[in-house]
Design a protein around this nucleic acid. Sequence first.
DNA 1: AAGTGACCTGG
DNA 2: CAGGTCACT
Length: 483
Amino acid sequence: MWRKIPLTKADIDLKTLLTCGQSFTWKETSPNIWSNVIGNVVFSLSQSENALLWCTPCRDQNEIKNISQLPSITRNYSHARNDNDEILGEHSSSLSLGANHIHNRITNSNDSHSHKDNGDTVIISKCPFSESDSHSKSPVSLKSETLTDPGNNISALPKAKESHNRCRKRQDKSDLLTNFKRKTTKMTALSNDLDSEPDYDNAKKLKTESEPPGHYYCAEDDKIYEQKLVDYFQLGVNLSALYKQWSSADKHFQLISDRFPGIRIMRQDPTENLFAFICSSNNHVSRISGMVNKLSQKYGTKLGTVDGTDLYSFPTADKLTGSKVESHLRELGFGYRAKYIVGTAKVLHKERPEGFLNSLRDRPYEECITELTKFLGVGRKVADCVALMSLDKSQVVPVDTHVLQIAIRDYSIPGVTKNTRSLTPALHNKIGKYFIDLYGDHAGWAHTVLFAADLKRFSDHKPVSKKTQSAPKKKQKPAKSAK
DNA sequence: AAGTGACCTGG
DNA sequence: CAGGTCACT
């Protein structure tokens, strides 16, 4: 079952966005369909002319695994009657929901590794959204529809399995609270409910009196997952308006923008993003992707399989603190970054409070950089990437060799010429400030468009006149030892 | 404050 | 040489 969010290429260009070096974990699980884990949920995405298409193909597996794995979290909500047994019991029951033709058969909770076309057969014939979110002021319409066929533009769609929401899992709730609490994100009535810790069982009773339970839960459930996407892709930000602003401020951007619409900043998980960009140092995008995937594969949790591709959660920091992790990562080809990863994981897990990285979202940019660069293997550039892509610092322009080359080639910045040798902190600041002055408070977003355009320039037209410019690097910073 | 080399690996 | 960082000069 696919749903769609009405969006154009100007709002989001899915394929380019997912492959332009922001996130390293999206996989094309079948032609034109991209899958990844967002907040412990497996999502599959696709795009048609006028909509972003999405589904959650592994949701059944997720719920079962999460609930059986996280009893301690369930315990936190003691007011919500009982715990695992009852929830699982509800899962295990076969539901027949009358007019909705929902048939749901859950098999064993521990065999999700093996079954490809498993017993979680769920058919939902109809599952309309409520219209209650029409108050949203998001510049893009978020009115959604469900569909059984995403449209003619898509080929070879996977047979998506779907379930209605049999129960709210507590683990998911806490996750949602984090997301919904963003100041910049318009909250729906539902999220407000979640914020105030509702009694789900009671809510269920109330609702079942007025509506078919299948309808209600399915619609609510879809909204929650859709909201994850709205948050992840920051769909509340009007990209077209920004493109116009940047174009009027910068002729060069104007030239680029027509060929590269729909490039926005994804709001990624800080932990995953931090480790991913630690891997990025002095490295190719293809190898970065491989390394991030290995971290998930070897130290994360398998959440499901989409068209033969296994998908894993990114490991929590504590999973990367073991005594043998560094040597293992070396064997896996991480090189000197193995030490950085373990060092960072240890500090994060043992010397920082729970949710530390997420808490930086509410701190000013300078403080974010100060804190992030305390981690081993994290310099200014990596810290900037995390700040921009995970900590809501939309103005940050991460200056790397690529951006330096763009600055030299396409812009006139005093002191930045083809003779520029090293990317010193002072130069970093100067270039960053130049783009912030040029583009405004979403300068980091604009920079990503330039960056994506440059990547494409190199991948599309192979033989680029690569003037063998002496690639400048090097920089320095206060000492930071592994301890 | 700015400059150097080393650091892992593989496309 | 690749979307750097670290330790020293």
